[in-house]
């Protein structure tokens, strides 16, 4: 693997990490969502993300000459080796928190995946083309829930406002390219996420207004996921996600 390939592999793994960790969080609702329809919707959205992670990981494994597999990335790496955005690993919280997070990342991922369809890396572009179609559905639903919760009862409105307040500081990280991303943007492989921020902010402002939710003041920001510096929550998530492979290494179904 030359340096460029190594970088493309790392990029694929971090995109796989985003999708796996968020997909796992969404799957935690399975069987206990507030309504049957929501249970199905959350589980299906989780499947889309987990499927996405498999595609990104498989491609990375191919670049490593298949010495490893998608499972190696998912089940055998420790916290510090994961490169997902922090917003993906935050616990589900209440339903308002889950949907607010989903809305904020759906706006991001739709634009991101649209950009990635232009990647010179054919496989990344192919995964992105599928993801764009799925993200449109995710976004339609999460945006609708923002309106419903925001304009619902006093309690649903307050819960949504609290969720947005608590999530706000985790959003800047989505738009901060690191060295790897910058290098791959120059090579035509990666999406320049700093260029997505203005349109994202415009769309989010509009939705928050429709939901009668205040955009949080101040500019606190938490970052570090892309460097492997995580919140305390990721370790707990991984201990559940990786339990079987940790207890019985190499076990197959």
């Amino acid at each position: 693997m030359d340096m460029q390939q190594e970088a493309v592999k790392d990029y694929g793994v971090r995109l796989g990490d985003d999708a796996l960790i968020l997909g796992h969080r969404l799957s935690e609702w399975c069987g206990k969502a507030p309504a049957l329809e929501e249970d199905l919707a959350l589980a299906n959205t989780a499947l889309d993300f987990i499927g996405r992670s498999r595609l990104f990981y498989s491609h990375a494994a191919e670049l490593e000459g298949n010495r490893v597999s998608e499972d190696t990335y998912a089940y055998t790496r420790d916290c510090r080796e994961f490169r997902n955005l922090l917003i993906c690993e935050l616990p589900c919280g209440d339903f308002a928190f889950t949907m607010a997070r989903q809305y904020l990342v759906d706006e991001f991922y739709l634009a991101f995946m649209q950009g990635l369809t232009f990647s010179v890396e054919q496989t990344l572009a192919g995964v992105a083309a599928k993801a764009v179609k799925e993200s449109r559905y995710h976004l339609r639903r999460s945006r609708q829930w923002m309106r419903v919760l925001g304009q619902g009862t006093d309690e649903s409105h307050d819960r949504l406002q609290t969720a947005v307040n608590d999530l706000w500081g985790y959003t800047p990280e989505m738009f901060e390219p690191d060295e790897l991303e910058r290098k791959l943007v120059a090579a035509g492989v990666a999406v320049d996420t700093s260029g997505l921020k203005d349109d994202w902010m415009k769309a989010v402002n509009k939705t928050l207004a429709e939901a009668s939710v205040q955009r949080p003041e101040g500019n606190w920001a938490v970052r570090g996921g892309r460097q492997g510096i995580h919140t305390e929550y990721l370790g707990h998530l991984l201990s559940e996600l990786q339990f079987v492979q940790r207890a019985y290494p190499g076990l197959e179904w």
């Binding site: 329809e37 929501e38 199905l40 919707a41 959205t45 499947l47 799925e134 559905y137 339609r140 639903r141």
Partner: peptide, 13 residues
């Protein structure tokens, strides 16, 4: 439309 997501990801209810 009852739900954008039905019994599987490809279907709505």
């Amino acid at each position: 439309l009852v739900s954008e997501f039905g019994s599987t990801a490809c279907k709505a209810l």
